[in-house]
Simulated assay, not measured.
Amino acid sequence: MNHSRESYDRLARELGGYRHPWARVLSGPDPELTFDLWLSRLLTPQTRVLEAGCGHGPDAARFGPQAARWAAYDFSPELLKLARANAPHADVYEWNGKGELPAGLGAPFGLIVSRRGPTSVILRLPELAAPDAHFLYVGPRLNVPEVPERLAAVGWDIVAEDHVSVLAHAPTWEDWQMRGEFMGKLARRADWDAEATVRGMPYREERHLVLARQLGVARKLGA
Score class of each variant (00 low, 15 high):
Asp175Trp: 12
Ala168Tyr: 11
Val164Met: 12
Leu37Cys: 13
Glu94Trp: 02
Pro58Val: 02
Met178Glu: 13
Asp91Phe: 13
Tyr137Phe: 09
Arg207Cys: 12
Gly104Trp: 08
Val25Met: 10
Glu205Lys: 08
Glu149Trp: 10
Ala168Gln: 15
Glu14Met: 03
Trp95Cys: 01
Ala68Lys: 13
His89Pro: 09
Arg48Tyr: 03
Ile122Tyr: 06
Ala107Tyr: 02
Ser76Trp: 03
Met201Leu: 15
Ala187Thr: 03
Arg115Trp: 03
Ile112Gln: 01
Ala196Trp: 01
Leu39Ala: 03
Arg41Ala: 14
His163Gln: 11
Met1Ile: 10
Thr44Asn: 06
Arg116Asp: 09
Ser4Gly: 07
Ala103Tyr: 03
Glu100Gly: 13
Glu206Asp: 15
Gly57Leu: 05
Val154Lys: 11
Met178Trp: 10
Tyr73Arg: 00
His163Arg: 12
Thr47Gln: 07
Trp38Met: 08
Val121Phe: 07
Ala133Pro: 06
Ile122Phe: 09
Pro29Cys: 11
Leu221Gly: 01
Arg62Trp: 11
Asp59Met: 10
His208Lys: 01
Ser7Ala: 06
Val154His: 12
Ala196Met: 05
Arg41Val: 06
Val164Ser: 12
Arg204Lys: 10
Leu42Val: 03
Ser7Ile: 00
Arg62Lys: 15
Trp192Ser: 00
Ala218Thr: 08
Ala61Val: 08
Val92Phe: 08
Trp192Glu: 01
Arg24Met: 14
Lys81His: 10
Leu167Cys: 15
Val166Cys: 04
Asp36Tyr: 13
Thr119Ile: 04
Leu105Ala: 02
Gly16Val: 14
Ala212Trp: 01
Tyr18Glu: 00
Pro108Phe: 08
Leu186Phe: 07
Pro108Lys: 12
Tyr18Asn: 02
Pro148Glu: 00
Val25Ser: 09
Gly139Asp: 05
Leu151Arg: 05
Ser114Met: 05
Leu151Val: 06
Pro77Phe: 02
Gly64Met: 11
Gly64Thr: 10
Ala23Lys: 09
Pro31Glu: 01
Glu174His: 07
Gly180Ser: 06
Arg213Gly: 02
Gly222Cys: 03
Glu51Arg: 10
Asn86Lys: 14
Thr172Gly: 06
Leu79Asn: 05
Leu11Ser: 07
His20Met: 12
Lys220Thr: 08
Val166Ser: 10
Ser40Trp: 13
Trp22Gln: 12
His89Gln: 15
Gly106Cys: 13
Ala133Arg: 01
Arg124Thr: 00
Ala133Leu: 01
Met178Gly: 04
Gln46Lys: 13
Ala107Phe: 01
Tyr8Met: 12
Gly222Met: 11
Arg199Lys: 14
Pro31Leu: 07
Ala187Gly: 03
Val210Gln: 00
Glu6Leu: 03
His89Lys: 10
Phe35Ser: 09
Ala218Met: 05
Gln177Lys: 15
Leu79Lys: 05
Leu101Ile: 08
Pro102Leu: 06
Glu205Arg: 14
Gly17Cys: 08
Gly200Gln: 09
Gly16Thr: 15
Thr119Arg: 05
